[in-house]
Design a protein around this nucleic acid. Structure first.
Length: 146
DNA sequence: AACGACCATTATA
DNA sequence: TATAATGGTCGTT
């Protein structure tokens, strides 16, 4: 059965909904219902692990543009970044569509949308607060390329 | 089914 | 700095 819980990242709460190894929702929110989450989340947000294995995002299933984008983003290694353009090439779509998909990413962290940045060297966006993206990349010790 | 607006983009000048 | 081109989704009709 589906379970929902939350953990903390700085001032933010991370709400997690999952069933077995499939994660349906990961969102940064101000307030969230209390409850346990899979240990992968607390460890990741503490910088103790670099993967969510064996958890997977429900968003990568299917065969549409968004799921291809989510699958491509999921392959970006910890600590590295790719541009919207680079992701678009891999997913066979347009950079703008990658932006759309990231804005609607239902499973942040599992699909590491914080590792997707703009071609001009700026960060791009992050919902609900760009500072979260900065903090996550800082925590991962952002390197360059791959 | 068709259309227009929206967007976390990018290339060009 | 501004603008055109771009593609997928979503609401409206």
């Amino acid at each position: 059965m589906m379970q929902t819980g939350s953990c903390s990242f700085g001032l933010w709460k991370v709400i997690v909904s999952w069933e077995g190894n499939v994660v349906y929702q990961v969102q940064f929110v101000r307030t969230a219902p209390e409850g346990p989450v899979p240990v992968q989340f607390t460890k990741f947000l503490a910088g103790r692990v670099d993967s969510f294995d064996p958890l997977v995002s429900a968003a990568v299933s299917g065969d549409n543009a968004y799921s291809r984008v989510y699958a491509a983003v999921s392959k970006i290694p910890y600590g590295e970044t790719r541009t919207y353009r680079e992701v678009a090439l891999v997913a066979d779509t347009h950079p703008r569509v990658v932006g759309n998909a990231m804005a609607r990413n239902p499973t942040s962290l599992i699909v590491p949308c914080h590792r997707v940045t703009a071609s001009d060297g700026t960060l791009g966006g992050f919902t609900p607060d760009l500072q979260i993206k900065r903090d996550l990349l800082k925590m991962e010790g952002k390197k360059k390329r791959g």
